[in-house]
């Protein structure tokens, strides 16, 4: 088990290195750079100013030189300086990452609380109206983009209640109500979509287990249906559900990119959108690396969880 864990952890390094190289190259292949952007508002900045700024930022150096300098910094966990704000990337990310993690956790919680009960209810009532209703609900979650749902939510709140989620983030420990009033809406928008996949997976997984011999045996023994479902069927159908929920958690970070923008939540997703728009290479590279790390790490944790959930699975 120990060797397996170390091996998996070491495998993360080439994966992240590949992501780093790809991001570095892709950002530079796209036309335009931060200097063009910085002065594009005015439409009246001369080429000399542009060239001078490029030189000051080191953007006129050969690509391989820029890459070596950047990688040298990254291995020391120094992600460099934002080309747009001239502040350390770690400072820019540090100010936002907590908000995104909180939002992702709330969304994941909402999704899990919705998905598992709904999935079980749908399975137990297969091909009856609760099943149809839940399937329509979950298909809706897949069909509606969370940012669109977010726009509708804000409009609804404003039109009907003349109220909108707070514009300024207040940390949970300072004012939990204000904090929740801001984050619950994007969490609902994202969590709904997130729950849709998990609901469908829970339903099909529970349906499969409900047909197993040991479930029939439990029923034959006279075990109450509630216990049959909760103790025998649900527990044994959780493996694929956990996989889906965990992987969706990693995807969730991607989903937040647009939703944070819509709700004006000052998180990592909004920062990434701005950084891409500003061609802030250092910042984009760092955020993409973080997202990739989350994805790879969650996958790793899921693999370890398999062993916990299913004792038959052992790692050599």
């Amino acid at each position: 088990m120990g060797r397996y864990v170390i091996g998996r952890l070491l495998l993360m390094i080439p994966t992240l290195l590949g992501v780093a190289i790809l991001t570095f190259v892709l950002m530079r292949v796209v036309p335009g750079d931060v200097v063009e952007l910085r002065y594009s508002q005015s439409g009246s900045v001369s080429q000399d100013v542009i060239d001078r700024e490029r030189h000051l930022l080191g953007l006129d150096r050969p690509l391989q030189e820029q890459f070596v300098v950047w990688m040298g910094q990254v291995v020391r966990l120094d992600f460099g300086t934002s080309l747009w704000t001239d502040r350390p990337v770690t400072e820019e990310i540090g100010a936002r990452i907590g908000i995104t993690i909180e939002l992702a956790l709330i969304a994941a919680l909402i999704a899990t609380l919705l998905a598992i009960p709904l999935g079980v209810v749908a399975a137990v009532n297969q091909d009856r109206w609760p099943d149809y209703a839940i399937r329509v609900f979950s298909i809706g979650g897949l069909a509606f983009p969370s940012f669109w749902l977010g726009v509708l939510m804000i409009l609804g709140l404003v039109v009907w209640f003349h109220w909108a989620p707070p514009l300024i983030f207040i940390p949970l420990w300072k004012d939990p109500v204000q904090n929740l009033a801001q984050l619950i809406w994007p969490a609902l928008a994202v969590g709904y979509r997130y729950s849709a996949v998990a609901t469908r997976m829970t339903r099909s997984s529970v349906l499969e287990v409900l047909r197993e011999d040991y479930v029939r045996t439990a029923r034959a023994k006279g075990v109450r249906e509630l216990f049959v479902v909760s103790r025998h069927a649900l527990r044994n159908s959780l493996l694929p559900v956990v996989t889906v929920i965990s992987l969706e958690f990693a995807f969730l970070f991607g989903g937040l990119v647009v939703t944070e923008q819509v709700f004006n939540v000052n998180g990592l997703g909004k920062l990434l959108v701005d950084a891409v728009a500003h061609r802030d290479y250092a910042l984009v590279q760092a955020i993409v690396l973080i997202f990739s790390f989350v994805f790879v790490f969650v996958n790793f944790i899921v693999d370890l969880l398999y062993g916990v959930l299913d004792p038959r699975i052992r790692y050599a």
Partner: peptide
Amino acid sequence: ITDVNRQTTAIQS
């Protein structure tokens, strides 16, 4: 606020 809809709803609310 960068999102255009959110700008409008911020004034509206």
